[in-house]
């Protein structure tokens, strides 16, 4: 389990993280979301013991990472910038980590197979594509079979097939009882992968909730399509409602389907479609951070 408890980190005059508290439970995938500069990477690096908090604590299985006798057996991480020597092969990169963490060498081939890198394992990392580097990063994180995974933008550079593979991998790891914390900008992907989300803005916590709870708390609006959709839009805009337009399709964000249906009937407009739209994670995110 991951616990961030009143975490604060100042860099001279800049406050990167301020009084941040959240938990990421074992057996669940938790997404850490926020716009650029929200403090996500600082938070992850505090969790991993790479940055010292100014105050507060970041705990993995009840202790700061530096207090675990063998930290890499507790937490595996994927770094945003990779963390590979370009002149070393993928297999040798993992062999080095295995030697440092006293993991048996056969495990290296196991994780290479798990991430689908067996064929490229002997090549130098400098020649890897971004997607291959991400896979190697995941192999590094999984090498010592840690109880916690901290992944900074793990889907970066993966093709759609790779993204799907990553999703199932993360779900499997959570199902095996691990706490998985993922920082990501891919909200659609997060919605499919994560159980819970933690949203940050300007270094502070904005929301923490299960994905379903967050989206259901936000009205998604009512979509209207058809020849008179623009008239519907104008009608509700004139009455102070927020409206989004996309061709013959409009979305009235803050009126009920019943009110819109009544107006259409009274005015005698022709529409092809009228339906309440569920809010997406993106809607919820934008509403929370804007």
């Amino acid at each position: 389990m991951i616990v961030v408890d009143h975490l604060t980190r100042h860099f001279r005059k800049v406050t990167a993280v301020e009084d941040l508290s959240f938990e990421a439970a074992a057996g669940r995938v938790t997404a850490l979301l926020g716009p650029n500069g929200a403090g996500k990477s600082t938070t992850l690096r505090c969790l991993l013991g790479l940055i010292r908090p100014t105050s507060g604590r970041a705990l993995l299985d009840g202790r700061p990472v530096a207090e675990h006798p063998e930290p890499s057996r507790i937490v595996g991480a994927v770094w945003e910038r990779g963390g590979f020597h370009p002149g070393r092969s993928g297999r040798d990169h993992l062999r080095v980590l295995a030697a440092a963490t006293r993991v048996d060498e056969p495990r290296v081939d196991e994780v290479l197979a798990l991430v689908g890198l067996e064929a490229a394992a002997g090549r130098r990392v400098g020649g890897y594509s971004l997607g291959m580097r991400q896979r190697l990063g995941l192999a590094s994180a999984l090498l010592a079979d840690p109880a916690v995974l901290v992944l900074d933008e793990p889907a970066n550079g993966l093709d759609p097939q790779g993204v799907r593979w990553l999703r199932s991998l993360l779900r499997e790891q959570a199902a095996a009882g691990k706490a998985v914390l993922v920082s990501s900008h891919g909200l659609a992907e997060v919605a499919l992968t994560a159980d819970d989300v933690v949203v940050m803005r300007d270094g502070r916590l904005v929301a923490q909730a299960p994905v379903a709870e967050l989206t259901s708390s936000l009205a998604g609006g009512v979509e209207v399509a058809g020849p008179d959709a623009s008239r519907v839009a104008a009608y509700f805009q004139a009455r102070g409602h927020h409206v989004e337009r996309a061709g013959e399709r409009v979305t009235v964000l803050d009126a009920s389907a019943r009110d819109i249906g009544r107006a259409i009937g009274e005015e005698g407009w022709v529409v092809d479609e009228l339906r309440a739209r569920e809010a997406t994670l993106e809607d919820a995110f934008v509403a929370l951070v804007s």
Binding site: L50, P71, S72, H85, A100, T101
Partner: peptide, 12 residues
């Protein structure tokens, strides 16, 4: 090469 993060994570 930012390998320092992985190196430091292996030791207390």
């Amino acid at each position: 090469h930012d390998t320092i993060a992985g190196t430091l994570l292996a030791v207390r």
